[in-house]
Amino acid sequence: MNIFRLAGDMTHLASVLVLLLKIHTIKSCAGVSLKTQELYALVFATRYLDIFTHFISIYNTLMKLIFLGSSFSIVWYMRRHKIVRRSYDKEQDTFRHLFLILPCFLLALVINERFTFKEVMWTFSLYLEAVAILPQLVLLQRTRNIDNLTGQYVFLLGGYRALYILNWIYRYFTEQHFVHWITWISGLVQTLLYADFFYYYFHSWKNNEKLQLPA
């Protein structure tokens, strides 16, 4: 495992911890999109189908369990926890899941490396992860006051994607790593979705202002 991959995974882990910290400690999920969280739960559930049948390393299994556990517990908190659910911006979080899930599923049926159940599900999870942040970005744009933790959560998620691209470039040159165009293209699309957010994040950081996205 190279340094970019490890840094990417740790950034991903940090993003989840920041979100859990906000929800668990402050008992608030204001500004967090439940739609995006449900999509991530679906992404991990469909990607890690072989978690107990295909062993890679203890690190790998542990991280998979963390991502599965954290995504489902965040969804549970936002839907069921009697205090946390009150802070959910339901009226603002209106993005339709199905507009993302259905096209991703159809695309996975058509464009995949092997037409098997596991492979189609794995491909679907890659396509869905690429666009799963969209409801969150739409919600951020509608929310006038983005709190620090929510801003950091999205920033860390975007950072994780950027580091994965460096990881693929590194692997390409050092390991004769087989190029999976599906992984590369959906990963690139996903990272580009954060470009706009990054621009305003750095802008507010540089000027020491509160993060606000233009309407």
Partner: peptide
């Protein structure tokens, strides 16, 4: 196999 090597990623 080459198809599996990318699946060591999360």
């Amino acid at each position: 196999s080459s198809n599996d090597d990318v699946k060591d990623e999360l």
